[in-house]
Design a protein around this nucleic acid. Sequence first.
DNA 1: ATCGTTGCAAAACTTTTGCAGTCTG
DNA 2: CAGACTGCAAAAGTTTTGCAACGAT
Lengths: 157, 157
Amino acid sequence: MLNEGLPPGSEVDLKNGMKETFQQYLSERGLKSTLQRNIILDTFLHIDRHVRVDDLCLILRAEHRNMGHATVYRTLKLFVESGIARELRFGDGFTRYEPVTEGKQHDHLVCNVCDNITEFKTGAIEQLKDEIVRSHGFQVDTLKLELRGVCRQCIRQ
Amino acid sequence: MLNEGLPPGSEVDLKNGMKETFQQYLSERGLKSTLQRNIILDTFLHIDRHVRVDDLCLILRAEHRNMGHATVYRTLKLFVESGIARELRFGDGFTRYEPVTEGKQHDHLVCNVCDNITEFKTGAIEQLKDEIVRSHGFQVDTLKLELRGVCRQCIRQ
DNA sequence: ATCGTTGCAAAACTTTTGCAGTCTG
DNA sequence: CAGACTGCAAAAGTTTTGCAACGAT
């Protein structure tokens, strides 16, 4: 362990942890650590927020002219399989991905006016999970909560 | 009013109300009530559950050989605009539509094993809406809650 | 008669797949 | 040096659009 001295929850710590997790995932499966995968991971973690695949491609291609979009799609799927990313679909036709930051569970507020997507947290969710297990015998793995409406800025205008 | 005698919340009542709403929506906007639109609406209401567009097309084409899928897509969008239907996307690439039945708010449990989608109700949601308004100044119009995991049947097997 | 609507086909879009050449372990 | 990976192009799949013929008001 190289970052013993750092506070355990720091940004850098988290990101390094995710990189480690990904490298481990690759080697465990006989997959390879390539230049492209590392570039995509760095860029993805640097953005540090949900991002559309085509946006990520654009950002990547700005620096790396011949990065194939197929590679980006394939790599993002690997991120999800390794557990360091989550796939998001808000139903507008674009798939988004975001880093999985443990202990930072959040959901999304989508503004119907400006289309901005805001993250928010709520404690009411965990209770809900328990309720579902009890009433439906359904084992909950993931929970997706999305609220649409009008955001503060757009209400004011 | 033709159905005065019926209990106000009955199936028939609800569906007739939705048909009326749709007809009113059309005439208000100078749009036309056509054979196809009425067939699609009847079939859609008869299914009475979320349905994939391509499934609905198949069902419709069984009876009406030359119903165009473009017409189905266009009509379903009209349903949403008129407020009698809701668009659902679970992120599997298929758009689904379901009738909006007021006072029957429900959400969805998606099983990762058998891919079945179950509807469920919970009371915890309304509190959550209020919480969001207070803490984020966000005016909530619609709320989408989706839980993924393993359903009762699949747990048993 | 006007203008919205339909059905067909083609286009548009995101995402996936096939393949020859390249690079990692 | 075997086999995984990349980048390109083409394919796949759903949804949208253009257009001539049709139909509702």
